[in-house]
Design a protein around this nucleic acid. Structure first.
Lengths: 234, 234
DNA sequence: CTACACACGTGATTC
DNA sequence: TGAATCACGTGTGTA
């Protein structure tokens, strides 16, 4: 059975007979059959001999279909398509992604330029200030989250160094779609203290109509970080 | 990891017999020939049939190489790669493009929403422009990667601070499955210097039989980081 | 007619 | 094992 093409390409068509043609041509040169339309089938019962399906024939067909669908969808989201070809589609997508990233960076720098100096002062200030431990310090995993005005937070984490722990913190931040604006870390024997200046990503802000919702998300993030860095009780 | 050697003339060997196997299998199932080693060749004289190179063999090879290169480059510019596969690479690229476009729209609306602040942005933008003295910018993005014995590396990055840049570095490290053992960062006006001590994850080591492969991966990571932190021309 | 781009089926490899 | 991915060589259509 000629598997119907996934999404019949506009214009090409006739993909479903290619397979038979291919097999037929191979059979022609193999069995010595020269009648190219005479598939009466001394060896073509059209039931099992012609359709020896390799184990992953339809799987491969589906895989190709998915790939082509994805290329098609990729071509749909990229505005400037120079040539109607897979290779140039990918190239255009790469260029478009780079352009978009530069645009985002430029817009972010334009938008967060004056707060940039703010967090810079904040960061250095909190750094020097936290160097002086005040009175009662519990030297277990500690997380502090301090709002910094508009949409930024100061995140301070004190932990005992363990393998993979910092990675888990980074993954948690990545999962919550927060941008790390700055990070100062001091590591010394067995302990580490990190000062993040973080900002929830704009994509996350899209989902939150109410600004107050942002806070509960950050509280949730803080609790998650606390559970990550807290000393396991064995 | 699965970097196939491009011109596998001597390594694999057995590329040139695939054709015969393929034809043979077709003949077997087609002509009913069951002797799989009977290439007596009523039309396969085995002298030119084995070396019958299709006219567009190397052209197709080059095309596939370009396509794979483009997919690789696409995978390089997309931060969140879920699976190391072509299909998911394309899917992630699509998602990333959509996210970037939404982000651009959001940032543009934010920028256009507050005209009063836009004035400030404009002023501070020019301020930051003069803030960065571009007379002797030799202090652009620099990445050093120093092996530390067994399986650790010292990674030193010097950069000019830009919004979201540190996040991209973290994402790159995350994508390469390296553990961050320690991180010390110094930030000062407009510049930052970070000292990572990183270690490739064990899961990545499993895929690499040869230890020498690890180095090329790290060199690749270093180049990626260089391209991330380097000052964009223009 | 040459060159290029595609789809196809298959073997190999990986998990 | 079996499912999934990939590279490969080839036939075919189009510019």
């Amino acid at each position: 059975m000629p598997r119907r093409p996934r999404a019949s390409r506009g214009g090409s068509g006739g993909e479903e007979v290619k397979m038979e043609d291919f097999v037929e041509s191979m059979l022609n040169l193999g069995g010595g059959g020269e009648g190219e339309e005479s598939e009466e089938g001394e060896q073509l019962p059209a039931a099992d001999a012609t359709q020896y399906k390799s184990k992953n024939l339809d799987a491969e067909r589906r895989r190709r279909g998915r790939l082509n669908t994805n290329i098609l969808k990729l071509r749909a989201v990229v505005p400037n398509i120079t040539k109607m070809s897979k290779e140039s589609t990918l190239a255009d997508a790469i260029g478009h992604i780079k352009k978009l990233q530069n645009q985002v960076l430029e817009l972010q720098s334009q938008l967060a330029d004056s707060p940039g100096e703010a967090w810079e002062k904040q960061g250095s200030a909190s750094c020097s200030e936290s160097f002086a431990p005040n009175d009662n310090i519990h030297y277990q995993g500690q997380v502090e989250l301090i709002p910094l005005g508009s949409c930024k937070y100061n995140l301070k984490i004190f932990w005992t160094k363990r393998a993979g722990l910092f990675t888990k913190v980074l993954e948690a931040l990545c999962n919550y779609n927060v941008q790390v604006l700055s990070l100062n870390t001091i590591t010394y024997y067995g302990y580490a203290e990190s000062f993040f200046c973080i900002e929830p990503a704009s994509s996350a802000c899209l989902h939150l109509q109410v600004k107050g919702e942002q806070d509960v998300v950050m509280v949730e993030l803080r609790d998650l970080l606390s559970s990550i860095v807290e000393v396991p009780s064995i």
